[in-house]
């Protein structure tokens, strides 16, 4: 378990103090994939670096697996870091070493014998799908391949926690998807707790089960991904969930009632809602605006529809009978 308790980080710069993190408290359960999302400059990278003490917090505590990271001696901290490994946006491989030797590197630091290290490194390169690149140098690989090597390297010391700092931000969408799948696989197979730092919603949607939204150094929202994304409360969260702004609404027409439908995780593949309403009840709805997203094959979000005023009650009755959605009438002047 990772616990951040009232974490503060202030940087002293020439222009005065900059508060990068303010009173952050988070709990990340073992085996979870936890997303920390925010715009650039929100403090995400500083936050993740406070977990392994690459940045020393100016206040608060960080507890990883029962150890208070802020109180460890330098030697104990180095030892502890072997169980909290990290991958980076720019991969940060050693450019003058082969992939195999890159994966061996953390084991070398740990004093493992060369033979054992090489054996384990080959297994790990197999695991990340690059068994044939052992003797290639990083410069000969694509970005996605380099990140795979970095992941193999991060796993070399059998960590309990994997920190991913914008690990897919330098990759194209297909490669991103493949890397995220690999991370999820590793999380499932090895039970490693994964902390994902990103500015991309799609990354959180794809692999995280819990999320914290960071804005100007504060956690503005946190919880289950589905919960947070279905009903974003804070401005920062809304901006992330609906990057193009909230729905644009057509002006109300005469004899039209407007209904707001909320999707709280209903199965999208189940039944076409609007079409069913038209086919079975003869209610011709007009979609005035929608902002829905699908996570894990469930729909979240809102939709605003217009129905003929005369059929309003019938429409309400039908919609209320559908499980997993909420419906409310929008007053004329809203």
């Amino acid at each position: 378990m990772i616990e951040l308790v009232h974490l503060d980080k202030t940087f002293q710069t020439a222009d005065g103090a900059v508060e990068a993190l303010r009173d952050i408290s988070l709990t990340i359960e073992d085996g979870d994939i936890f997303g920390i999302i925010g715009m650039s400059g929100a403090g995400k990278s500083t936050l993740v670096r406070c977990i392994n003490m690459l940045e020393r917090p100016t206040g608060g505590t960080v507890i990883v697996g029962g150890d208070d990271m802020t109180k460890l001696s330098p030697a104990a901290l180095r030892e502890k870091r072997r169980s909290i490994t990290m991958i980076f946006q720019q991969f940060n491989l050693l450019m003058q070493r082969t992939c195999l030797k890159n994966v061996c590197f953390p084991m070398e630091l740990d004093g493992k014998s060369k033979k054992d290290a090489k054996k384990k490194a080959r297994e790990l390169l197999d695991l990340v799908g690059l068994p044939d690149k052992a003797l290639a140098y990083p410069a000969q690989l694509s970005g996605g391949q380099q990140q795979r090597v970095a992941i193999a390297r991060a796993l070399a010391t059998n960590p309990e926690v994997l920190l991913c700092d914008e690990a897919t931000s330098a990759l194209d969408p297909n490669t991103t998807h493949a890397i995220l799948e690999l991370i999820r696989d590793i999380n499932k197979k090895l039970g490693i707790t994964v902390v994902v730092i990103t500015h991309q919603m799609s990354v959180v949607e794809e692999i995280c089960s819990h999320v914290a939204i960071l804005d100007e150094g504060r956690v503005v929202e946190q919880g289950d991904v589905a919960q947070v994304f279905a009903h974003p409360q804070s401005d920062a969260a809304k901006k992330l969930v609906f990057p193009n702004g909230e729905e644009t609404v057509l002006p109300p027409q005469e004899n039209q009632a407007r209904l707001r439908i909320g999707f709280n995780g209903s199965a999208t593949a189940d039944k076409p809602l609007i079409a069913t309403m038209a086919a079975e009840h003869g209610i011709l709805a007009n979609i005035l605006g929608a902002s829905t997203r699908a996570f894990h094959e469930q729909a979240f979000g809102e939709m605003l529809i217009g129905v003929p005023a005369a059929q309003k009650e019938e429409a309400l009755a039908f919609l209320r009978s559908v499980p997993g959605i909420t419906v409310e009438e929008v007053p004329e002047d809203a």
Partner: peptide, 29 residues
């Protein structure tokens, strides 16, 4: 690249290990 040094630190490298195994070998050319 300072990021590579940071990566080595994140793996628990000691200052001497960073000098001998990262800084010098990486700047050989």
């Amino acid at each position: 690249n300072p990021n590579i040094i940071e990566a080595a630190q994140s793996m628990g490298a000691s200052p001497m290990q960073i000098i001998c195994k990262v800084m010098i070998p990486e700047s050989v050319p």
